[in-house]
Design a protein around this nucleic acid. Sequence first.
DNA 1: ATGAGGTGTTTACAGTGTAATCGTATTATG
DNA 2: CATAATACGATTACACTGTAAACACCTCAT
Lengths: 220, 220
Amino acid sequence: MRVVQQRLDRTQVVESAIAFVDACGLSELTMRRLGTALDVEAMALYRHVSGRADLLEAMVDELIDGLFDDDLMTEDSHSWEEYLQRVANATRNLAIEHPRIFPLIATQPPQAPWLRPPLRSVRWVEDFLSSLQRFGFADAEAVAAYKAFTSFLVGALLLQAASLNPEVIGDEEDSSVGGDLGEYPTVRRLQGLLMEDHAQREFDDALDDLIERIRTSTQA
Amino acid sequence: MRVVQQRLDRTQVVESAIAFVDACGLSELTMRRLGTALDVEAMALYRHVSGRADLLEAMVDELIDGLFDDDLMTEDSHSWEEYLQRVANATRNLAIEHPRIFPLIATQPPQAPWLRPPLRSVRWVEDFLSSLQRFGFADAEAVAAYKAFTSFLVGALLLQAASLNPEVIGDEEDSSVGGDLGEYPTVRRLQGLLMEDHAQREFDDALDDLIERIRTSTQA
DNA sequence: ATGAGGTGTTTACAGTGTAATCGTATTATG
DNA sequence: CATAATACGATTACACTGTAAACACCTCAT
């Protein structure tokens, strides 16, 4: 966690907070506890962070801007379809690596009303829109694609992250998870199918379909 | 809020909590404050609710089960497409009427791992699956539709609710919301388009597309 | 009338975010 | 290098949170 180091750093605070939430969950994150994790009194954090709200915002910003460093993002795309696929999978990796923080990314009020989670930084919107325009998208088409794409990501990945969350209630191995299910015959019959995990395939299918939708919408 | 009444009621507690969050936001909801809103000491709430977490869960359950009472849900659908449209629009109404609670609906860990927000009650899954099967869906098709449909709803409506949230940061009337935007020429040029609100149309379009996707996927 | 639960109140306590103040270590300036 | 300025962490303090425990009352079946 914290090595021998004399001076604290905002980056260090934020990264430790991310690690802490990954390990213990968001509700366990406390200024005092994060302080002891950094071997520092709680009030020391306020030199680098204006408060808990600012810390949460900084964690989200850190992760979202860290997306640019994903391997998928380091090389250029040769088509807008490839670009969308790279961004989608990089974001998916993020959701899988930080399932307890992703709800925050999806939920925290953005800095401007037109910034949409999870691509909620001006830098990302610039990259997204300019990339699509580089491949011939008109203004309105690029903006429409941004909105549709962010909606898709939030929907697919928030539920993916939820399924990875350790604090989900019913994870007994019993097949009759919810109790009797006596009045719900269809659910009981299909429970096996409901529990099957095809998240990766469903994600890819939905993404392919979104790409197809964007394609026909820009051709028209 | 609370009329003259001698005995408190769990329903009353939960409904008051919903009204309180609608009015003041989730972070303002406090046992003490909800108590005074009900003209009661905070500890009295614990007779009807086992704690704050239980209260939040009860609020979500109340709203989700209340979906069945929406006008759109009272009459039967004559096709699975119509059913999906009714459920989608009823949920959309819910998100619009309670934008400050919808993040909770989308985020709160479900009672079983195979329950997906926002249709996160066994009763709703039963209704959804059995309805689709009534229109000829095979087992796996109905389950796949449930997963795709819930992802769509969460993505579209969480961002819709966020845009309605009063606590969004930048709502100055200034057109240069985020600051300079000097290094982001595309964003600056398209900012007007980004701020335009076509939520209803985008929702309908995405829903139509999802329906089309489900149709072709079940025919194959 | 009498007992027994159920319901609201009071008191109490550990834990939270954070404002204010105070030394000290670090850095900038001569 | 010496000194002044500043940044940083520690300490203390306070209002507020969720909730456990004990208490008093009201309601109601017997």
